[in-house]
Write a protein that binds this DNA or RNA. Sequence first.
DNA 1: ACGGAGTCGTTGCAAGGTCAACAATTGACC
DNA 2: GGTCAATTGTTGACCTTGCAACGACTCCGT
Lengths: 148, 148
Amino acid sequence: MDGATVDAFDLDEFLPYRLCVAANHVGREFAERYRREFGISIAEWRVLAHLSQTGPVSVREINAAVDMDKSKISRAAARLQAAGHITKQENPRDRRLVELSLTATGQDLLTRLIPVAREYQAELTARLGPDAQGVADALVRLAGQDAT
Amino acid sequence: MDGATVDAFDLDEFLPYRLCVAANHVGREFAERYRREFGISIAEWRVLAHLSQTGPVSVREINAAVDMDKSKISRAAARLQAAGHITKQENPRDRRLVELSLTATGQDLLTRLIPVAREYQAELTARLGPDAQGVADALVRLAGQDAT
DNA sequence: ACGGAGTCGTTGCAAGGTCAACAATTGACC
DNA sequence: GGTCAATTGTTGACCTTGCAACGACTCCGT
């Protein structure tokens, strides 16, 4: 007899596994482009992307909007500041808050970053074909906070 | 003027981001169950699941089949051995290889592990509704090795 | 005005992951 | 048969992440 004496479980069919593999692969692919072309990490990219939408924001707001620990945001912001892409200054109305703002070079960087992201997004949707939107919706349902 | 002087980019619509969030959420949810109920990690679960399909295998084979670094597999196997769930013995035909085999208690563990995984899978597919299979297929397309 | 609870961002630390050496072993080629 | 490249699994070094504690600060009730 062989060793498969218990119920076999096909890991390849297991959704958490597939999800993890897909996320790792895509994340790696994307991170590699950004690292090579621009020298920034995913965490830094997320902070910049959020800033492109909102203008100056606090760490707390990014934390609420983006799925990242505040320490991760803090460190990413420190690196972005060291690279001259953003500035950090305390909010005079509430000195606990830090306002993160894009510098001119940060805005320049974003204008180069965003087309690359859009292009990659287009590649992925092409890879998915017509179901792309359905898949995108499904992902938010999977990440959804407790079904109500 | 506000700070959004550059093209805004909506991170929420970005597939790599959604994918990462979904994978993290699902992975966490699942890992939590396994940790609480059985005291094993995802890496260990993957090794066990693979063993349930194949019977005794080498680290190399798991590495080829499962998306995990060989060092990660090696350490997971060491923990599983310490816990008495598997045994490691060198392959007499090729003494570089290590054969990982389930022990009786490992098989028992698997018979309890697998239903929980199946149940969670059912929950997820329910969350996804009728598109579930399409989403599952899409995930492998996203993880697909270089489009040909 | 004061004290205490609550919030914000940073930092320290432990845990986990990745990557590259490394010893042990095998197979191929001369 | 001997040597050298290639493979396998483990280990160590390094980096990142997640969590909790911390100092600084605000706000509320008294």
